[in-house]
Every structure is written in C-alpha cells, then in structure tokens.
Amino acid sequence: MSDRTGPASASVRLPAHTWFDVRRGSSHVRTGLPCQDAAAVWRGRLPQGQVTILVVADGHGDSKYDLSEHGARLAVQTALHCLRSFCRRFNTSSSLLYDAIRHDFAHRLTRQWRQAVLRHYSENFPQDVELLNRPSINLYRRYGTTLLFSLAFDDCLIGGQIGDGDMTVTHTGGDVGRPIPAAERLIANETHSLISADSIRLWRFCRWTLHEPCLICLSTDGLSNGMASDESFGDFLRSLVRNIEQYSFAETVKVVPGFLDRVSAGGSGDDVSLALFWQADPRRKKKK
C-alpha cells in the first residue's frame, strides 16, 4: 500500500498500471497553507481475486478546518482499511459485497474515522483534556474532508463518494463514463463532507461493469474546477488514454504532475490529487 499527502517521492514503488499524485495548490503555496488533499493506491489479492483500490480525499482548508490535512490523510487510511475488511468479510459475490458497502460502509467508516481523529488529537493536543473527554462536532469539524473511493475487480468497479471530486472510467474509444453522476443540486462551490450533519446518508455508491481496456480515474475537485468545462475535462482524460496506448502508462504518467500544476496555477488554485488505474484486458488481447 502507498499513500501520501505531500509531493511525489521517487522511493514509492507502485503496483503495475496504477499511479497517483497529490499536488499542493498554487494558492496554498502562495498563502503558506499545507497541502490538504490525500490519496492512496492499494493493489493485492483478496478473496475476489486481484483488487485495486483508489482513494482520494480533499480536506476542507479554511481556518475553521485547520487540521483537515490530517483529516484527509486519516480518511484515506481508514477507507483502505475498511474496504479491505469488507472484501474479506463479504466475499461470496460482488452483489453481496455491493449490498454490504451500500448499507453499512458509511457508518462503519465514519466511526472508525472519528476514532482515528480522536487518537490523532489526543497525541497532538494531550493537554486539551476537556475536549478529549467529551469529543464534539467542534473537534471533528477541524478535520473536515471529502472522500472518494473505487474498488476495481476484473470485471466490475464498486465506488463511493461523499462530497465533490470526480470518478471517471475512460475507454479507448473515447467515451467517458461517470459511475456517480454529478450532483446537480449542489452548485456554487458547495459540497458535502464527512462532518456534515447526517453524513452517513449523504454518501452515494455505484457498481459499474468494466469492459476493458479502460482508465479508472479519481480526482479531487481541484482538477475539474480548473478545467474550462466538462468537455475540457473529458479532453484531458481522453488524452491520457491516447498517450497510454501510444507510448505507455509509465511514459504518460511522467508528464501528468506538470499538467496538474498548470491546472492549479492557471485554473483552480486548489490542491489537485489524481489516482489512476489502467485496466488493460488480457483476454481481449489474446483474442486479437
């Protein structure tokens, strides 16, 4: 497993065809704010076979949410842990796993995330006995974050999301699927989060059949907010797939960090995280 919140480091060795990066936003650099995004990739064998998990989180920033960089990192770690245990416990079919995730993931994750937050707070602010003894929303709020994950098996993807951020599946033909459609009712920079009241009911989940090859891509809103339109965002995704096919996955991801920095500097100003999984299809290649 690998996850990080800071700039890319060369020592992290990622499993084949997965990649992620977390770029500190231009406005964060300007104002001295830390990077408040976090991301992680995990790939391994579970009862279901080879599973690839991508997670990204976007800490809220702003002075009210001053510990949100930690909130995002803890959310990513907790999600990875929770998803792998769900895979192990609900392993008879993907339908059963999907049902379990839809019904139980949100509140199981929220509780574990809160416990992790509490641990972090007690380690870093042991003197704040009053709040630690009676943890309230005021404590958790400081760690506020969004969260977005995808679990990819051979032939399907199960995903979940609270708050903004984008999950896309881009095929070689150029069509871009959105397993979780954009929330039309949330406009003007408004989002849900792990600290929203009644947050467990604000989650959205999806199951999506994969017909490979395709690129699964999770990103925080710093990316799509810096693009001129949904169409431009699609252009970016299609150019990723085209380059992977023309050159290679490894060659393509080398140029992605620079592009993400340009999106932040010339567009959103925000932190930008991107996690990728290129699902090439061995079966289909054999047929050819």
Partner: peptide, 8 residues
C-alpha cells in the same frame, strides 16, 4: 437514497 443524499 437520492433523497437522503439531497439529490432530490
């Protein structure tokens, strides 16, 4: 679920 998530 869509009502819960304030989508509707």
């Amino acid at each position: 679920g869509q009502v819960w998530a304030r989508l509707r």
